[in-house]
Simulated scan of single mutants.
Amino acid sequence: MTRTTPTLWQRLRYLTGATLPPSMSDWVLADLTGPGATRRYLLRFLVPVLPVLCLFLLVPGPLWMGLSMMALLYIPLIYFTVALTYVYRRHRLVSHGLDPALADAEEQARAEAERAAYEARHQRG
């Protein structure tokens, strides 16, 4: 029997960039494009960095200095993580042998619905 969801070890490897077997393609697709995909992506990139950044709090000096050093690194990380969400999603789909167009399937469906509503409103088509 082939597994359709990853084991704990496979999930940890997946979080670090490894690919999963083809039998888990549906799980990968749901993880990358399903509800909560953006939230999971942001948590995977932004939370593990926090303990490392907290080391700046050990630097001698006032608290604001350690916090500002953390912010100098964390704010750009947040910015680039959000900016590269789409690129990362497409890359992970391709690395698992899935169509990268699935990354924006929700936007395509929304655009088609808007176009159909527009055409219905203006008696076109």
Results as ranks from 00 to 15, higher is better:
Thr2Ala: 13
Arg3Pro: 01
Thr4Ile: 12
Pro6Arg: 05
Arg11Cys: 02
Leu12Arg: 14
Arg13Leu: 10
Leu15Trp: 13
Ala18His: 14
Thr19Val: 15
Thr19Trp: 04
Pro21Cys: 12
Pro21Gln: 08
Pro22Ser: 12
Pro22Met: 06
Ser25Pro: 09
Asp26Lys: 02
Asp26Ile: 04
Asp26Ser: 09
Val28Pro: 14
Val28Ser: 09
Ala30Glu: 12
Asp31Pro: 00
Gly34Arg: 09
Gly34Asp: 01
Gly36Ala: 10
Leu46Thr: 01
Val47Glu: 00
Val47Met: 10
Val49Tyr: 08
Val49Ala: 05
Val52Ile: 12
Phe56Trp: 09
Gly61Ser: 00
Pro62Ile: 02
Pro62Gly: 10
Leu63Ser: 03
Leu63Asn: 01
Gly66Gln: 11
Leu72Asn: 12
Leu77His: 06
Phe80Asp: 15
Thr81Trp: 10
Tyr88Gln: 15
Tyr88Leu: 08
Arg89Phe: 11
Ser95Cys: 00
Gly97Ser: 13
Gly97Met: 10
Leu98Arg: 11
Ala101Tyr: 09
Asp104Leu: 02
Ala105Gln: 11
Glu106Phe: 03
Ala109Cys: 02
Glu112His: 08
Glu112Cys: 04
Ala116Asp: 04
Ala116Met: 00
Ala117Lys: 09
Ala117Met: 12
Ala120Trp: 04
Gln123Asn: 00
Arg124Ile: 15
Gly125Phe: 01
